[in-house]
Design a protein around this nucleic acid. Sequence first.
DNA 1: GTGGTCTAGACCACA
DNA 2: GTGGTCTAGACCACA
Lengths: 125, 125, 125, 125
Amino acid sequence: MLHIDYSASLPIHKQVEEQLASLIATGALRPNDWLPSVRQLAMDISINPNTVQRAYSALEEKGIIVSVKGRGSFVSPDVSAAHTAAEQVIGEMIKDIVSKSRRNGWDNKRLLEFFTEILEKEGDF
Amino acid sequence: MLHIDYSASLPIHKQVEEQLASLIATGALRPNDWLPSVRQLAMDISINPNTVQRAYSALEEKGIIVSVKGRGSFVSPDVSAAHTAAEQVIGEMIKDIVSKSRRNGWDNKRLLEFFTEILEKEGDF
Amino acid sequence: MLHIDYSASLPIHKQVEEQLASLIATGALRPNDWLPSVRQLAMDISINPNTVQRAYSALEEKGIIVSVKGRGSFVSPDVSAAHTAAEQVIGEMIKDIVSKSRRNGWDNKRLLEFFTEILEKEGDF
Amino acid sequence: MLHIDYSASLPIHKQVEEQLASLIATGALRPNDWLPSVRQLAMDISINPNTVQRAYSALEEKGIIVSVKGRGSFVSPDVSAAHTAAEQVIGEMIKDIVSKSRRNGWDNKRLLEFFTEILEKEGDF
DNA sequence: GTGGTCTAGACCACA
DNA sequence: GTGGTCTAGACCACA
């Protein structure tokens, strides 16, 4: 079950998109698995079908899911797109950090130390 | 002189706020230094005074600058807030990455490798 | 036996229509050959009879097959329609490409090079 | 001025997207040029602002334009994305033709002849 | 019942 | 005035 955080700055359709992408990237949803219908998922998490539709469209555009009129949506047979999509997003987030830290005068060494420090605090994985 | 990137996704008021915070964090602006007036800075960089005001308010909220009615704004006597502010923001960004990467099934090792790889690509600093 | 690709974007009724048209155009099905009944074909390939009906209607509209109430459907005595139908469809697709490429400022030479390049990549036939 | 064909099967938001992309790819709109505002363009061509928004979002996602809250939208400083986008679309169209023609038993030679024949009919360019 | 488009209209952030 | 999100609701193609 997906979880929507209404107080988050991330728009709802992005939250849905990201959570589905993660379920696929982690293997919780596997190639060719059926996804809930747009209307069903909208009801389940109490949001507007249009908003779900938007998430599904984005995932399809990225090749992560396949949607067919009259039949439904399912995880793309080739799920590699999900992995590259995740890498891309995380890569962007890292670049943002790098540029932000440089604007504050940090060098690579300091950023790396700060990063590993937080990584350790957050616990092993 | 501040530099505004109009094609950046970062809103202008955030760009102003961040650049001032950086100037202070790096010591380019020192405790008790006078800041340009809201109107003056707005004219200098050709943006809306409301936008500058917003940046100043945010910096004051964080204790990085002090504004006094009728006198103007100046760098806070105790500038440590500027450092902790930057650390806080970057820290949040890092935590976001950590949680995002875990939702995608990455362990610490993989994330760290990806991080350093990008760090190197972005060049030394 | 027809083959349905459920993950294709092409609607099922179009897949059926096209495959039957191809069997006729290539001579695998010959003039006056009997076609399976709508219900029979639907069962064989496990799809909705409505969907098969739709394909048959389209083929009849184009003069490629003939359906007679109470008797069934068979390949049209004059099969030339099948050839012209395919040519027509492919012709339209090519015209779409030509106009699209011109809207993007490509000249004939560039389009032709791009076309042959892809043709080669897709392998000999 | 853009032109919407309401009887076309291509959705309106795609028509807008494609026409803007073409204007950029051909150089009619140049890097950093301002685009009409979402609401303005919607009024001009008498469609709903949401529909224009959708086209703009798609173009931004592809890196062809840049949109900034409160300021407007303009052609991306680096317009190379527009060219690769066009190549991608035309490439897909060509692949569709190749597979369609093979399903009809055409070999590369026949397809190529048919293609050049139409290209010539459509006039030089 | 599926996915998908479009409109109308409210609301928010930003300049 | 900008861009952007979300909802409600009508409508269409397809199975």
